[in-house]
């Protein structure tokens, strides 16, 4: 930093002080707790080393929740990307009237997640929910949207898509608007069909935005809590229990805070691996763009 700017170091103090106290310290404390057998109800804690980790990694429930998380993550992110990209292209094409649509389409994302989950619950609830009531009108026997293990997963994926597709749409729409229109015009003059323009001009130019939004979404699914908590509570049984839901159960229902911390650390490691992988993909894509 240049000499006359040395005073700027002080500007970091409040924020970084806060972060140290409310973020780094608790995180360190969580890692510390993960080495203890600690039941908060009795307040007794004993150092157990890696026992919590070994317990977790050898039990079926963790792998079940991991698997559930992966299914929900890839199902919802794929759906969000396809629909979000289609919507973004449609908005881009419309241009003028796009603004009204973008605001309306964005509503589900901006609404409090808990409230959004309730809205969906009132759609999916058996018998009196909107979907069941409509289907029953035509004498169609509806499925148990939230009660059967398979449909519950599908419902959760759809719910996630309902809330997060607008985010994907907006990011990609913004990226589309940032495109150099002369590129598209050049493609048109060259006689490229719409499909070819999309494949060879638009998508390559959007790669950074696409990777950005997909990686954000994938990582967010690992923190995904509000929707599942309200919609299914992880049920039926553990059919929709993601890692986050399982951690919640461990920490705040069973008060096994040591084990829950260990699970949190495991989640962090999984997310970190995901982050690194995506980052590498991101770099490769950028280098690909340079060629």
């Amino acid at each position: 930093m240049v000499r006359w700017q040395h005073g700027l170091w002080l500007f970091f103090l409040p924020s970084f002080g806060l972060l140290a106290v409310v973020l780094l310290w608790p995180l360190g404390y969580a890692v510390y707790l993960s080495f203890f057998d600690y039941y908060l109800g009795s307040g007794e804690r004993t150092f157990v080393g890696l026992a919590n980790y070994i317990d977790l990694l050898t039990e079926a429930r963790l792998w079940n929740s991991m698997w559930t998380t992966i299914i929900i993550a890839f199902g919802s992110v794929a759906l969000e990307f396809l629909v979000g990209f289609a919507l973004a292209l449609a908005l881009y094409r419309l241009n003028g009237s796009a603004k009204v649509f973008s605001v309306l389409l964005f509503l589900p994302h901006i609404v409090t997640p808990v409230v959004a989950a309730l809205f969906l619950k009132w759609m999916l609830a058996s018998n009196w929910g909107f979907i069941d009531a409509t289907l029953l009108t035509f004498n169609i026997e509806p499925a148990d949207w939230l009660g059967s293990p398979v449909w519950a997963k599908v419902s959760v994926i759809l719910a996630d898509a309902w809330v997060f597709t607008p985010l994907v749409m907006m990011v990609l729409y913004a990226a589309l608007q940032g495109l150099d229109t002369s590129l598209l015009e050049a493609a048109q003059i060259d006689g490229a069909s719409s499909w070819n323009t999309l494949r060879h001009v638009i998508i390559p130019a959007l790669i950074p935005a696409i990777i950005f939004v997909i990686s954000i979404r994938l990582m967010d699914v690992f923190r995904f809590f509000d929707l599942i908590y309200v919609l299914t509570g992880g049920g039926p049984g553990t059919a929709t229990e993601t890692i986050t839901m399982y951690t919640y159960q461990l920490g705040f229902r069973m008060l096994e805070v040591g084990k829950a911390s260990a699970l949190g650390v495991i989640t962090l490691i999984v997310v970190a691996i995901l982050l690194l992988t995506i980052n590498r993909g991101l770099n490769k894509a950028y280098r690909g763009g340079d060629r």
Binding site: M1, L19, L23, P26, L27, Y29, A30, L33, L40, M219, F222, R223, F225, T244, T247, Y248, G251, F252, V257, A260, S261, G264, V265, T267, L268, V271, L275
Partner: peptide, 29 residues
């Protein structure tokens, strides 16, 4: 100098909130 700090902040943003909620809950208690 700013780049690494920004990346670090971005990474922090990605932390599972559950991992933060537990120590907050314990310390709060």
């Amino acid at each position: 100098s700013a780049g690494p700090i920004l990346s670090a902040l971005f990474t922090i943003r990605m932390f599972p909130h559950m991992l933060l909620a537990i120590p907050f809950f314990v310390m709060g208690t």
